[in-house]
Design a protein around this nucleic acid. Structure first.
Length: 473
RNA sequence: GUCCCCAUCGUCUAGCCUGGCCUAGGACAUUGCCCUUUCAAGGCAGUAACACGGGUUCAAAUCCCGUUGGGGACACCA
């Protein structure tokens, strides 16, 4: 059994999107499971569309979701001589020929054929011209088989039969000397000894074009696997129109990379009824025959739920760490630097059941920084009223009498006061909540006090009483 | 137009390969109830699907054929 070698081969023509990450993920999972090698290859042979920024974006995205590669990143533009020599080899073998048709002419003929309802294929007019050394601009075309069948045993879809009569002679070397995708991909997959080519469904019909090139070059043919597409809510291919498709956009929106990975892998793969998987479980349980054959609609709601699950169950310290940059972004940098990492983790525990993203978490956590509190005006107006002032005063007195801050004794004191005053819990809790956090919604009151500490709890209570006495300003 | 792929709740899916255990299971979303100091979280319950038509078979979501619908490919893009 030879070692499994798989690759992820994006073209750097934009950011790394959701679909790309999923393709990379399935390859990575398989490599890790099989103790194989995962190779990153940048397909940048379209020099007019490839950009350096895109390459960086791909690498950044891969790192964020934790998909590490064993070899590469290779760049096809650094391997031009390789493609060129193999293309020329095909020419020498009589399996490729020079084509001097102009790009504009081809375009026109294609349009024409389409208008007549014909197949927009190359008509092969240069095939028999026998041009030995082209004088002007010329592209090299592969002589595709014109009869017989190409059979692909797909890892996911099973046996697929293509009639070779539908093939046309595709260009393998452009007139500018650059190879085209269908050629460079074959040369690289062969030379890099890729054993399993796993890519998006949109490449399915490229397979019968590529297989004959492997054969002509005398290379062994890898196994192929075609992953179903990811669709938007309108069931068309996922694109910008459907909102965020860049993987890094999800980082900015406060998603955890582990949640992203878990969601994406479940979009098209399943293991019974299980929804949540650790990365180790994914590696162990992944299998091609449980990869779905049909396209899947990307569901932001379920992703959001998944993220909430990870926020709730991940180690708080780890969540806090991911939260820090967002707190800084929210202008809390100075405050954050003053506090201990443990306290930040405590805050995460305090609010983690109430937030579905890190961005939401920033909002929830804001009131716990700094000495004073900012009131939501409506909340203060409703609960910090002159009528409430005396009770709050009594509560303050009781708290002041308590040494230190023990959640249970403060809670006991609080409930005793409620009892003594003959009021309902909520009647006191809400004003205190507003005094402490400035808002009507917060975690449990006594957890809040614990996070604030004795001093700040008392300070905010006094502040609240002052506001209550003063009434709305 | 030609070729290829696909088809279970609104969505992701289990079941299909190896027909009976399916009165079709789980999850997200949604509705109601419970819990409750607020907001959540949580618990319980509910609504909701085998695209259609033919076969094969004692028996079909599962196998076969067709129809319809959706998606993809047909570049000197990848």
């Amino acid at each position: 059994m030879t070692q499994v070698r798989v690759r992820f081969a994006p073209s750097p023509t934009g950011f790394l999107h959701i679909g790309g990450v999923r393709t990379a993920l399935f390859n990575w999972l398989f490599a890790r499971q099989q103790s194989g090698r995962f190779i990153l290859r940048i397909e940048d042979t379209d020099q007019s569309r490839s950009t350096e920024e895109s390459i960086q974006a791909i690498i950044e995205g891969m790192r964020w979701v934790g998909l590490d590669w064993d070899e590469g990143p290779f760049r096809q533009t650094e391997r031009m001589e390789v493609y060129r020599s193999y293309a020329l080899k095909l020419f020498e073998q009589g399996q490729a020929y020079w084509c001097v048709c102009k790009a504009e002419e081809l375009e026109a003929r294609r349009k024409d054929a389409e208008a007549k309802g014909l197949s927009p294929r190359y008509d092969g007019r240069c095939r028999h011209r026998g041009i030995a050394t082209p004088t002007g601009e010329a592209a090299l075309r592969f002589k595709a088989p014109q009869e017989g069948q190409t059979v692909v045993d797909d890892l996911i879809k099973g046996k697929i039969v293509f009639d070779n009569t539908v093939l046309d002679d595709l260009i393998i070397l452009r007139s500018n000397g650059y190879p085209t995708y269908n050629f460079s991909v074959v040369v690289d997959d062969a030379l890099m000894q890729i054993t399993h080519v796993v890519r998006g469904d949109d490449h399915l019909t490229n397979t019968p074009r590529q297989v004959p090139i492997f054969q002509a070059l005398g290379f062994p043919i890898p196994r192929f696997g075609h992953l179903p597409m990811i669709l938007g809510s309108d069931k068309t291919r996922l694109s910008k129109r459907h909102g965020a498709t860049s993987i890094m956009a999800y980082k900015e929106m406060g998603y955890l990379p582990e949640a992203m990975v878990n969601y994406l892998v479940r979009l098209g793969w399943s293991h019974g009824d299980q929804e949540i998987f650790t990365r180790q479980e994914l590696i162990e349980k992944f299998s091609w025959n449980h990869v779905q054959t049909s396209a899947a609609v990307f569901n932001p709601d379920k992703l959001l739920w998944m993220n909430a699950e990870y926020i709730k169950t991940s180690p708080p310290g780890q969540v806090a760490e991911a939260l820090v940059p967002l707190l800084e972004q929210a202008g809390l940098g100075d405050e954050v630097r003053k506090v201990a990492a443990e306290w930040l983790a405590q805050l995460v525990v305090l609010v983690k059941e109430r937030t579905k993203t890190l961005i939401e978490m920033v909002e929830w956590v804001k009131p716990y920084f700094g000495e004073a509190v900012m009131y939501e005006e409506e909340a203060a107006r409703k609960f910090l009223t002159p009528a409430m002032a005396p009770v709050l005063q009594k509560l303050l007195a009781r708290f002041e009498a308590l040494p230190g801050l023990s959640k249970s004794s403060w809670e006991e004191g609080f409930k005793k006061l409620v009892e003594d005053e003959g009021i309902k819990m909520g009647q006191l809790a809400q004003p205190v909540r507003v005094a402490l956090t400035g808002r009507t919604a917060s975690p449990g009151l006594f957890e809040v006090m614990e996070a604030l500490g004795r001093e700040r709890t008392l300070i905010r209570l006094r502040q609240g009483i002052a506001r209550a006495k003063a009434g709305p300003s």
